[in-house]
Design a protein around this nucleic acid. Structure first.
Lengths: 237, 237
DNA sequence: CAGTGGTGTCAACAGTGTTGACAGCAATGT
DNA sequence: ACATTGCTGTCAACACTGTTGACACCACTG
């Protein structure tokens, strides 16, 4: 196993004069490497040592640029948020399309970077990417005709659903793997239950296993959009 | 630190003849101890060594009764599901109340056992508790007048929301702590943004910080209930 | 040219889940 | 009643995790 030493005798790229060739790091390059690593190895966890090896530097050097692993994960997650916002192309007026685009992009990016997505359940990044995402959603619901409590509540509902559901899908796909066509089931195994005690499960069991996670995810988004529409109608009158 | 040794010289309860006093374990007692431990120390993680110490036995003895830690967590989570279902008292006809009771009980139990709740995002327990919970939800939506695809989809939406949102609340409360009255904010800090670039955040920032997690959780449940009502009306005509 | 702050390296610590060898107890078969 | 078999707790150890403190080097400042 040549696991940890790795960088030692390489002299890799940066003109190693007498063997060591210390690579120079900064937050940007670390974040970039973290995103690549999370995308490359579909693992649901990302270790500091792995990241150090990919950077060609000692793992602990990362702690010169991030206080914690948690802060590092925040930066990675915020970059994912920023990229999600960047994919939204629909005009400001079409608030429904903007919300759907943002949600879909978040799911795709999370599914491609499961190790980062997992952190999103609890983490608030406090970075610029998150701010842009919040602004986008608030603006969308404002253009939908909402205001005050109804607006912030619909935003919170949407944000919660998108982040936690996308994170869950990313995690379960990285452990169970997805189908070759990119789809993946929402339930993992067949559900076996005695029809005497669980008649409903017996009746609907097969339909449950046919549910597809992405479809269900977007269905939830649409449900929130429809709720916003109704709230807007109610406040208009 | 008398951390790991612990059980060594105790002679604790079971009439330790000459010092060792091997405690006899089974799945039931391990699950019971796991639930107590998760409730006692509000930590978001539960280690095998901690659990072994609480049982007064060697940590690795647990592996005689559960193949993995994952299987152990499944059993713990399934017990939580069973207890949630057991708290539902509303009559079968009042499907709305039954759904709300189940959701509220799940949130409370998850918040009290954060180390177990965290696992629920991905885990499907395949235990009797989970089956009962699924049966309850399917039955509720059937009595709401739904059938076929609409029924299973509303079930999936509800289950996803309840599990992932309750898990997220449990985790964030265990890290940031809740208020003394049991409530806790949905957003953690104040949101600072430049009004030029993020006008909506500047306008609604304070309202966002006033959102309460439990209220928002139940609001999501109600949104799904309302969606079910509308779907039922549409299919009736 | 001296000095100072920042940065990478290395060894080490305290944890984590998990496994294999060993020992003892309980129930089995005859 | 005895021998055997299998289950179960114990112990040491492995591979892995995040993180810290001492050290050395390098680039910049005065």
């Amino acid at each position: 196993m040549t696991t940890a030493t790795g960088a030692r005798g390489t002299g890799q790229a940066t003109s190693g004069r007498r063997g060591a060739a210390k690579v120079r790091l900064d937050r940007e390059s670390i974040v970039a490497a973290g995103l690549e690593l999370a995308a490359a190895s579909g693992s649901a966890t990302l270790s500091v040592r792995e990241l150090g090896a990919r950077l060609g530097a000692d793992p602990t050097a990362i702690y010169r640029h991030f206080r914690n692993k948690e802060q590092l994960m925040q930066a990675l997650l915020d970059e994912l948020n920023a990229r999600s916002v960047a994919t939204v192309t629909a005009p400001l007026d079409d608030w429904r399309a903007r919300i759907r685009q943002l949600a879909a992009a978040t799911l795709d990016l999370f599914a491609d970077h499961p190790a980062i997505a997992v952190e999103s359940v609890v983490l608030t990044t406090h970075g610029p990417g998150e701010l842009d995402a919040i602004e986008l959603m608030l603006d969308a619901f404002a253009r939908a005709g909402l205001s005050g409590d109804a607006l912030v509540r619909h935003y919170a509902l949407l944000a919660g659903h998108v982040l936690s559901t996308a994170a869950g899908i990313a995690r379960s796909r990285s452990e169970r793997g997805a189908n070759e066509d990119g789809t993946s089931p929402w339930f993992d195994g067949p559900i076996l239950a005695d029809p005497r005690t669980h008649p409903r499960i017996a009746a609907f069991g097969t339909q449950l296993t046919e549910l597809e996670d992405r479809e269900l995810f977007m269905l939830g988004v649409d449900a929130i959009i429809q709720s916003a529409e109704r709230a807007a109608e109610a406040s208009e009158s």
